[in-house]
């Protein structure tokens, strides 16, 4: 029991961490809380299941293609819509509303294109369960855990070792200075949004086999992702992962030992209390206003 609870916690935690990572990347780069991120996950999972099941590509090819499509979509969203609003100087609270409006449009669009009924995500492996220290786990969940770890590593390397990644970090810390150094801030922001959307694509492909691809998927995990970002410190990408693992473990223990219907309530309570008691999260100091 204990081992299966811990494994379930780690798996869900890693996915929540990835979801939270998507929020954090964008917030760090542009200071925008992107509520459309959760609907990006919905869209990605629906595109993914279409490519995998209907078109009949292999899982890995479908994953790569979905990430590519989502990268382009995210970058276009930033260039076509979000940057227009930022240029107009829309105030912070209305900027959140813009992303919420976008999420409604994306969600409604998904329903129009893919239908309201959830689509069964076919299993990726032929083995149904794997025995780890006496706990039976589906191989898709193990894959999710390692994919999250890999994704985290790739993003870390991208942000610290590549030229484009370093440029996006420069823009995040001081856009004006970065522009003076000859970095194209507009392009860099587009890369960041694309990256976050690619992360969302990965989450969608990982969550598909667990929950099934449905239009309610994003809202189901989006808030959990925000909770993990907040508890790790919003904007801190490593913190998001730590927060996600924390949330996953807590949720899994509550679900396993207390009551499975209390699971979600505890996650939201954790997010709310974290914002009240320690809004800076574990590793960040941005959430508090000085007055």
């Amino acid at each position: 029991m204990l081992i299966s609870v811990i494994i379930a916690g780690l798996v869900m935690g890693a996915i929540y961490g990835m979801v939270g990572l998507g929020f954090s990347i964008i917030f760090r780069a542009s200071g925008i809380m992107n509520l459309a991120q959760s609907e990006m996950i919905t869209l990605a999972s629906l595109i993914g299941v279409t490519l995998y099941q209907t078109v009949g590509l292999s899982f890995w090819l479908a994953l790569a293609l979905t990430m590519l499509i989502m990268f382009a979509f995210g970058a276009l969203l930033q260039l076509g819509i979000i940057s227009k609003y930022s240029d107009r100087g829309v105030a912070g609270i209305y900027m959140v509303l813009v992303t919420l409006g976008l999420s409604k449009v994306i969600n409604g669009g998904c329903e129009l294109i893919f239908g309201a009924n959830p689509i069964q995500f076919p299993s990726v492996f032929s083995v149904s369960t794997v025995n780890i220290l006496g706990a039976f786990v589906t191989p898709e969940r193990i894959l999710s855990f390692f994919l999250s770890a890999l994704g985290m590593l790739v993003i870390h390397l991208f942000l610290t070792k590549t030229k484009v990644g370093i440029a996006t970090r420069a823009c995040a810390s001081d856009a004006v200075a970065a522009e003076a150094c000859g970095i194209n801030v507009v392009k860099s922001n587009a890369v960041v949004w694309g990256l976050a959307s690619a992360v969302a694509a990965m989450c969608g492909m990982m969550l598909g086999p667990i929950y099934g691809a449905a239009i309610s998927l994003g809202s189901k995990v989006g808030t959990k992702g925000m909770a993990s970002s907040v508890s790790g410190g919003f904007g801190n990408i490593y913190g998001a992962m730590v927060g996600g693992l924390l949330l996953g473990i807590v949720e899994s223990f509550v679900g396993g030992y207390v009551n499975s219907t209390m699971k979600d309530m505890v996650a939201y309570l954790l997010l709310f209390l974290m914002l009240c008691v320690r809004p800076t999260g574990l590793f960040n100091e941005q959430a508090v206003r000085d007055v």
Partner: peptide, 11 residues
């Protein structure tokens, strides 16, 4: 009330 706009939304 002490939270910044976006975090208040989240709360």
């Amino acid at each position: 009330a002490k939270l910044r706009a976006q975090f208040l939304v989240l709360a």
